[in-house]
Amino acid sequence: MPRAQCPRCTRPSERCLCALIPSLPSSTRVLILQHPSEVKHALNTARLAVLGLSNAELLVGEVFEALPVLLQQPGYRACLLFPGEKAQPVMQFAAQLSELPLLLVVPDGTWRKARKLLHLNPALAALPWVVPPEGLQSRYRLRKAPMVGALSTIEAIVEALNEVEAPTRFDALLAPFESLIGGQIEAMGEQVYQRNHGQPDALPGATDG
């Protein structure tokens, strides 16, 4: 018989994270485009981010037919939170030309799946690309990253919002994430964790988890 599940955070009822999830307002609007392969992943940080932000939306799919309309939401300037050669610091973009708040578009999936989302939705790749500040250390210790300083989806969103909306802080979004990571490590046991994940690992910035 399947275990009872919280309908909100989708965790098993005995491990519900809802008490740790804040409700934070932001001038920045966050739009997460999640690859279907991430939906049932135990470490679905994108869902936690949307639950904790009042001005956020999560869409699941590979091809988003309504994307051109979504990117033209009145009162916002859209940008893509994704690392790459043409990406600029998010604060640099936020300070350019306009006082309009940002629409932060975030692809969520593995590196391969996130790049597939960009390929299947050319309007995404055409956006200005932005990244969080350099030199950040991920709290995500359960997945390997291809580069130093890579962040999980929720971490990248938090760091971007902390920059753009300073002095307001969004670190409270990470409380359920850290609890989730701790629970996973506890469940596997310290010896197994140290054998498989002894060195702190991270995720591709805004593209995994």
Results as ranks from 00 to 15, higher is better:
L17K: 10
A4L: 15
L81F: 02
L71H: 05
R115Y: 12
G183H: 06
Q34L: 02
A4S: 13
P83K: 02
G61L: 04
L180C: 09
P74E: 01
T45Q: 09
A114G: 08
G209F: 06
Y140T: 05
L136G: 07
V90C: 08
Q199T: 13
P83T: 02
A172G: 08
A125F: 07
T168H: 13
E186V: 00
L20F: 13
L70Q: 01
I154H: 00
L127E: 06
Q72N: 14
A160R: 09
L20Y: 11
P146Q: 00
L142Y: 04
Y140K: 04
Y193C: 04
V158Y: 07
I154N: 04
P128N: 13
S138Q: 04
Q199Y: 06
M188Q: 01
D108P: 01
S152T: 13
A46I: 11
I181A: 03
Q92W: 11
C16S: 09
L103D: 01
T110L: 03
V69R: 15
V158W: 11
G182T: 12
S27K: 12
S54K: 14
G61Y: 03
Q88V: 15
A94K: 01
P36L: 04
Y140H: 12
P176G: 09
I32C: 10
A123S: 14
H35I: 06
L48C: 08
H41M: 09
E178H: 14
A94D: 09
A202K: 08
A172E: 15
V106Y: 03
L161R: 10
L20C: 05
R139V: 06
C6G: 11
G182R: 10
P133L: 05
L124E: 10
L102W: 07
L48P: 08
A95R: 15
M147D: 13
F170C: 08
N162H: 11
V192K: 10
A202I: 02
Q34W: 01
L67V: 10
G209V: 07
S23I: 00
G84F: 06
L118T: 03
R115P: 00
R143G: 04
R169K: 14
L17T: 07
V50H: 07
A94G: 01
S138T: 07
E65K: 15
P2I: 10
P74M: 02
G135T: 03
E62S: 11
V90G: 06
L151W: 01
A187H: 12
M1Q: 12
P7V: 09
L161M: 11
R29N: 02
M1Y: 09
Q92P: 00
P25E: 11
Q92F: 11
A95H: 00
C16V: 05
R3E: 14
A166E: 14
P101F: 00
S37Y: 10
H119N: 12
S54Q: 15
W111S: 03
P36N: 05
S179V: 12
Q92T: 14
L53M: 00
G135Q: 04
L67D: 00
C6R: 05
L142C: 02
A202H: 10
L24A: 04
T28V: 15
L124Q: 03
Q199F: 11
